[in-house]
């Protein structure tokens, strides 16, 4: 017998309302990644065999700096959302799942900040 009201259950558990947000984030990042990745792959092909100075000069171009940082942020948001879904689907042990998801989130945030900083160091440095 349920002693809790439906509202209390909705507030405390499950994907009531908030699940849609995750769904939308995954789709929006996917849409944003279409132009960003096509641009990035094109640039990488263009930069193949380029020397260090050329690559640095490319990253220093203001709009390239912006596009690279956008790419990094959106890419890791999308990767995080997908990897979380995979963990939720395949890891059934509640504690291991929680630890894996927290560890994954910390790791993704760390490398996101590291890569943005790398781009900024190149863009703003001497």
């Amino acid at each position: 017998m349920q002693l809790r009201s439906p509202l209390a259950r909705v507030r405390g558990l499950g994907a009531a309302r908030a699940g849609t947000d995750e769904f939308i984030t995954q789709r929006l990042t996917a849409i944003a990644l279409i132009p960003l990745l096509l641009w990035f792959v094109g640039s990488i092909i263009h930069l193949a065999r380029a020397d260090y100075a050329t690559v640095i000069e490319w990253i220093k171009t203001p709009w390239v700096t912006v596009a690279l940082i956008l790419l990094i942020l959106v890419l890791f948001l999308h990767a995080h959302s997908g990897l979380r879904e995979v963990l939720q689907d395949y890891v059934h042990h509640e504690i291991i799942k929680t630890i894996a998801m927290v560890a994954m989130k910390f790791f993704v945030i760390t490398i996101t900040v590291s890569s943005v900083l790398a781009v900024l160091r190149i863009a703003l440095g001497g």
Binding site: L75, G82, L83, V86
Partner: peptide
């Protein structure tokens, strides 16, 4: 998707090496 997530680490490495 999972394989590409691993690939992002190469992007991170490449950018950090350039920096």
């Amino acid at each position: 998707g999972v394989f590409l997530s691993l690939g992002t680490l190469v992007l991170v490495y490449w950018l950090m090496a350039a920096a």
